[in-house]
Structures are given as structure tokens and as C-alpha cells.
């Protein structure tokens, strides 16, 4: 983890709000005044459930979402309102890997056709042979045979397609890679391969990852720092291991206790401990804490929105009661609870 406050972060989101306008419906506020700072070579995990705004946050740097206020900075450069031409230039510095390995490759174009596209735009001078060479190297990097270049996407499995998608994203050696649920659609055995590949590439190429997932275990595995989102608000942020050991926000705690762990005995105790059931989500919030309608620890103070403030483990949390609540992690949450062989 390289955190030097003096250095310019790779990506910085400041006071960012995103609102989607919808036909004949009230506008949907996907992100509310969020901050994010991603240092060079760092991996930041973004966790939340559906509707939390994590995908919106991942797409904001690319200008794919309607930003209503706030600033997006890439390497210190304000790109919030970049023109189409500037965006084209920026794509060499940041790329994205998507969740659906089946949808992210054009089914009627060969892998080569798809993979050379960034080169056509950013290095128009390269010859066909040079481009083929670059594609071959990119395929090597992600552990696929070079002959894959001439095939169509349908000839590959989900895991292989995800490798191709990663290879494409890395064609121009970007500084930032946004991974939007890159392993959620994959089988367990393949998921581990892709996570290892991403870890290797990070070490090799010094890239920063913004890693989005609904699965805290996956995020904890790859990320240095984790940010928890709930309904467009950052509710907690901090070191991955510290957060697992001592969650500061009741929602983080709920996420940690909800995921069943693959150990029948531990899981039994976890289940028994999960006394404080979450109440059903209510449709609207009253302007106070967004989590209050589901929170088992709600008090009168929760009618005012809490601010994201430092917490004694070194992280940040947005909860009025974070210091007085004792939110012990359920057993089996930290890997240390498992007898390592």
C-alpha cells in the first residue's frame, strides 16, 4: 500500500453527485456527494448491494454518467466536463473490465479485430504486423494462446473471455483499471484464476485498480482499502483487514454477518448471533441517515445525516454511534478464525 499524501492521486472524485433523470418518474440520485482518492498502484475495493451506486461510481471517470455536481480528476487533471476529443485521449490512461464476459465482446468480430481497436485510435501509425505482435503479447500476458486472436468470442468460455477483456483493457498500458464485478459471472474455480491474474498484472504493470464487487470476501482478498456504499452514500471506508476486524458502520456489520461462510459449525454460530434482524427496506428516507430505516441501532440523532468522520481503527465511517456501538465481527469473518493448515 503506497499512501503518500504528497503524491498526486491517479483518480480523485470530489463532492461527486450523479442523478439519473427518468421518464415519467422522479429522478434517481445514484451518488450523493461522494469523495474518492485512489493512489498510484493502489487497489480500492468498492462494495455495496444493488442500487448502492458502485457501478455509477466506476463509470463516472469515463463520462458515462450524468454528473450533477462535483469534480473528477485523473492524475490531477480535471476531466469532469472533458470533450469527446479529450475523452478519446484519456482512454489511453484508464480502462474498464465489465461483469458480463459474454456481452463485452462483439460476437461477430474476431478477438484480433476487437483487441486492435485501441491501437487504431491511439497509435494509428502502427503497421498490421506490429499490431498483430502487440495482440499476441497481450494474449501471452493473460495466459491465452496466440492463436486465439483469429477466433470469435463464442469459441471461448466465460473465464477465457474475461481474460480477453482484460488483455484488451491493458493494450495501451493504462494507469487505472476499473473492474466492475469482473468475477461475479464466473464459476468459483475460474474466479480464483482471474483474481490471481489481476493481482499478477498489478504487480507487473503498476496499475491502480478500482475494484467493484458485491462480495466483501472477494474485495477483501484483492483490495488494499475498501469503501462501502449504501444508496449512493459512502458509509464506511478504510483498511480492508481492519474493517473486517472491527466494522464501524452497522451496514458494514450487516454485510459481514449476512454472507454465509463455508464452514457449517461457524455458520451455525453466526446464524444464532445474527439476532438483530434487519427490517425490510423502506422506500424513502426522511433526510437523516440513509441506513436508519433498516438500522437496528437507530436513535433520535439519526434524523440528521451523519458525516464521514475518522474512526478509531484508522478508517472513516458515517454513523452517529460508531464509537459507542460495539460491532464485533461475527465469527468466521476474519480469515484468521479459520485454522490454517
Amino acid at each position: 500500500m503506497s499512501r503518500e499524501s504528497s503524491s498526486v492521486p491517479v483518480l480523485e472524485l470530489e463532492n461527486l453527485s450523479v442523478t439519473y433523470r427518468r421518464r415519467r418518474q422522479a429522478p434517481f440520485e445514484a451518488l450523493n456527494n461522494v469523495h474518492l482518492r485512489l493512489e498510484a498502484g493502489e487497489t480500492l475495493g468498492l462494495v455495496g448491494e444493488s442500487g448502492s451506486g458502485k457501478t455509477t461510481m466506476g463509470r463516472a471517470p469515463f463520462g458515462l454518467v450524468p454528473i450533477t455536481s462535483g469534480t473528477v480528476r485523473l492524475d490531477g487533471e480535471d476531466v469532469t466536463h472533458a470533450t469527446a476529443k479529450e475523452r478519446t485521449r484519456l482512454t489511453a490512461r484508464m480502462q474498464m473490465v465489465f461483469q458480463d464476459p459474454y456481452g463485452s465482446l462483439n460476437p461477430v468480430r474476431t478477438i484480433q479485430d476487437t483487441m486492435v481497436e485501441p491501437l487504431l485510435v491511439h497509435e494509428p501509425g502502427t503497421s498490421a504486423a506490429q499490431r498483430a505482435q502487440r495482440v499476441a503479447e497481450a494474449l501471452d500476458r493473460v495466459g491465452l494462446p496466440r492463436r486465439a486472436a483469429q477466433r470469435l468470442p463464442r469459441e471461448f468460455s466465460g473465464g477465457q473471455r474475461q481474460r480477453i477483456a482484460i488483455a484488451r483493457a491493458l493494450m495501451l498500458k493504462p494507469r487505472l483499471l476499473v473492474c466492475d464485478e469482473p468475477v461475479s459471472a464466473l464459476d468459483l474455480s475460474v474466479q480464483a484464476q482471474i483474481l490471481n491474474l489481476l493481482a499478477d498484472l498489478r504487480a507487473e504493470l503498476q496499475i491502480s485498480y478500482l475494484f467493484i464487487s458485491h462480495d466483501l470476501a472477494v474485495v477483501r482478498h484483492i483490495a488494499d482499502r475498501v469503501m462501502v456504499l449504501y444508496r449512493g452514500h459512502v458509509v464506511e471506508e478504510g483498511d480492508a483487514a481492519a474493517m473486517a476486524a472491527r466494522p464501524g458502520h452497522p451496514y458494514t456489520h450487516a454485510l459481514l454477518s449476512a454472507a454465509p461462510v463455508p464452514d457449517p459449525r461457524t455458520q451455525r454460530t453466526r446464524r444464532q448471533q445474527r439476532q438483530e434482524r434487519l427490517t425490510a427496506p423502506l422506500p424513502t428516507t426522511t433526510g437523516g441517515c440513509v441506513f436508519a430505516p433498516r438500522c437496528p441501532h437507530v436513535i433520535d440523532a439519526c434524523d440528521t445525516p451523519p458525516r464521514l468522520t475518522p474512526f478509531r481503527t484508522g478508517g472513516l465511517a458515517a454513523c452517529h454511534r460508531m464509537e459507542d456501538l460495539r460491532l464485533d465481527p461475527p465469527p468466521g469473518t476474519a480469515a484468521a478464525d479459520h485454522p490454517a493448515s
Binding site: 469515463f62 458515462l64 478519446t88 463485452s104 462483439n106 485501441p118 485510435v121 484488451r168
Partner: peptide, 14 residues
């Protein structure tokens, strides 16, 4: 709306 169109956009294609 297909994802690969977004991917192509992010590759910098006009």
C-alpha cells in the same frame, strides 16, 4: 446498449 459498444467507446473509437 450492448456492453461491447461501451467497451469500444472506452477504447477511444469515434
Amino acid at each position: 446498449q450492448d456492453l461491447y459498444i461501451t467497451a469500444a467507446k472506452l477504447a477511444g473509437l469515434s
